[in-house]
């Protein structure tokens, strides 16, 4: 009886460890594919993340797209970052914020302030999202501060009769005070 049990246990252990080895081998192969995609994106070649890829591939593609001002596509990649590490999520939002800021600065330099303001407002939202994902992201804090100096959040006058703080509309209006001169 003991021998039969030992035989069954040994066969089970062998099968289980073989299955685990197969799983880890597959995971290593997928890691290599994902890393190849990340290297391609970092090297300036576009690569689509595979189905169920590691969030770091989506992160890399968002960085790639944001640097090339393909912000609609970058925005569409954001849902793939769900469940990723906070610093990766934060980095993805931060890269989009930086792209918006660059567009905003371009518009400011050509004196198209009406186009610059919405870009910087969107950049602020992106930096806020970055800080919501990772409140300790110091880069996002600095750049959000810079965006806030360009287009400040300012409170609206209190609306009468809206007593309940939960239903009161978000009081936000922005303006672009002054004219940043840009670097000499």
């Amino acid at each position: 009886m003991t021998r039969r049990l030992t035989f069954a246990a040994l066969v089970l252990a062998l099968l289980a460890s073989l299955a685990a080895a197969a799983r880890f081998g597959h995971a290593i192969w997928l890691d290599a594919r994902d890393n190849a995609a990340i290297r391609a994106l970092a090297g300036g070649r576009d690569a689509q993340p595979r189905e169920g890829a590691d969030p770091r591939v989506a992160h890399a593609r968002i960085l790639y797209l944001a640097w090339r001002d393909r912000l609609t596509e970058a925005q569409e990649m954001l849902p793939l970052m769900q469940g990723a590490r906070p610093d990766l999520q934060s980095g993805a939002h931060y890269a989009i914020g930086n792209a918006r800021m660059r567009l905003g600065f371009q518009n400011i330099e050509t004196s198209r302030f009406e186009d610059a303001e919405p870009e910087i407002a969107l950049a602020k939202l992106a930096y806020r999202a970055a800080l919501q994902a990772d409140p300790g992201d110091r880069d996002a804090k600095v750049n959000l501060d810079l965006a806030m100096r360009l287009v400040r959040d300012l409170p609206r006058p209190e609306i009468e009769g809206e007593e309940d703080p939960e239903t009161r509309p978000r009081r936000l209006w922005t303006d672009l005070p002054g004219m940043p001169r840009g670097a000499p």
Partner: peptide, 24 residues
């Protein structure tokens, strides 16, 4: 508040294959 004050984009992160290698 100039463009050169903007901190640069984040770096790319590679996946660390070692945990799966150790598992294998």
């Amino acid at each position: 508040s100039t463009p050169d004050q903007l901190l640069p984009d984040p770096v790319y992160h590679l996946i660390d294959p070692n945990p799966n290698r150790i598992g294998l």
